[in-house]
C-alpha cells in the first residue's frame, strides 16, 4: 500500500466560525484504495472537515486536494468525483429501487445507455431483479444499506464518503456490507468512513481520531491498540476522547 498515490492531501487545514476553531491545523493523507476511518466524539469537528473535503464548504486556510482537485477553486470537480452515503439519508423511500438508481445516475450525468446496462448488472449482482419495482420503504434495512452503497459508487467515483453507514443491522448483514466495501477498495475506490461505533473502526486500514478540532492519533487499528495498550478500538477512543473540552 505504501507505494500507492495519495488521493486526499490535507495540509494545515483550519476552519473557523467566528472565534471558534472547528478544525485546528489538520494534516493527513489518504491513499488510493485505502479504507480510512475518521473518528471523533460529537462536536470534535468531523462534520466540518468532511463538508470541506466534499466541496460543500470553504476552508479558512490550508492546502486541500481531493481526487487531484483543489478545495477552494475546483469544488464542482470534487463533487463529480466523489460518492456519498449516510445511514440517515441515502435513498428516497417513495421511489422504487430502479428509480433511485436512475435518479442518482442521472444527477451524475451518466448517459442513458450506460445507466441501463449498469443498472441491469447491479440488479443481477445483488439478486434484486425480481423486486426492482419495489418502493425503497418496503425494502429491509440491510438490503437498503447495501443498495445505498452500490448507488453511491455507481458513477465510479475516486472516493466514497460513508457517514455512519451500518448502524442497526444484524452481524451477518453488517459483514456482507463490509465485504462490499472491501471489494470496492480492492477495485481502487478510496473509502472514507465516519462512525461512532468502534467495531466499524476495526475494519479500516487506518484510523484517525479527532479531539477538539485536532487529530489526536492516526495509525492502523493494530498500532493504535498497541500504543494505547488495549484490546479494542473502543479503549483507544475513550482514552483520547475523554480528555476533550468540547464534550
Amino acid at each position: 500500500m505504501e507505494s500507492k498515490e495519495n488521493i486526499i492531501v490535507v495540509k494545515d487545514l483550519v476552519k473557523k466560525f467566528g472565534n471558534f476553531v472547528a478544525n485546528d491545523h489538520l494534516s493527513f493523507e489518504v491513499k488510493r484504495g485505502e479504507i480510512f476511518g475518521f473518528l471523533g466524539a460529537n462536536g470534535a469537528g468531523k462534520t466540518t472537515a468532511i463538508r470541506i473535503l466534499c466541496g460543500l464548504s470553504f476552508p479558512t486556510s490550508g492546502e486541500i486536494s481531493v481526487a487531484g482537485y483543489d478545495a477552494y477553486k475546483e469544488r464542482e470537480a470534487i463533487k463529480r468525483n466523489i460518492g456519498y452515503m449516510s445511514q440517515k439519508f441515502s435513498l428516497y423511500d417513495d421511489l422504487t429501487i430502479s428509480e433511485n438508481i436512475k435518479f442518482y445516475a442521472g444527477i451524475y450525468g451518466l448517459a442513458p445507455k450506460i445507466i441501463k446496462s449498469r443498472t441491469a448488472e447491479l440488479l443481477s449482482r445483488m439478486g434484486l431483479e425480481d423486486i426492482h419495482n419495489r418502493l425503497i420503504r418496503d425494502v429491509p434495512l440491510g438490503w437498503k444499506q447495501k443498495l445505498a452503497f452500490s448507488v453511491a459508487i455507481f458513477h465510479n467515483p475516486s472516493i466514497v464518503f460513508l457517514d455512519e453507514p451500518t448502524g442497526g443491522v444484524d452481524p451477518i448483514t453488517r459483514r456482507q456490507f463490509w465485504e462490499l466495501i472491501n471489494e470496492a477498495a480492492a477495485a481502487g475506490i478510496t473509502v472514507f468512513v465516519t462512525t461512532h461505533y468502534m467495531d466499524e473502526a476495526e475494519y479500516c486500514d487506518r484510523v484517525s481520531i479527532m479531539v477538539d478540532g485536532k487529530i489526536a492519533a492516526l495509525d492502523t487499528p493494530e498500532q493504535l491498540k498497541k500504543i494505547y495498550k488495549t484490546k479494542e478500538m473502543n479503549g483507544v477512543f475513550l482514552t483520547l476522547a475523554r480528555g476533550a473540552k468540547n464534550n
Binding site: 466524539a41 460529537n42 448502524g167 477512543f237 476522547a241 475523554r242
Partner: peptide
C-alpha cells in the same frame, strides 16, 4: 444509546 458517541455511551 443509538446515535450517541462512545464516551457518552459508557
Amino acid at each position: 444509546t443509538t446515535g450517541v458517541d462512545a464516551v457518552s455511551r459508557v
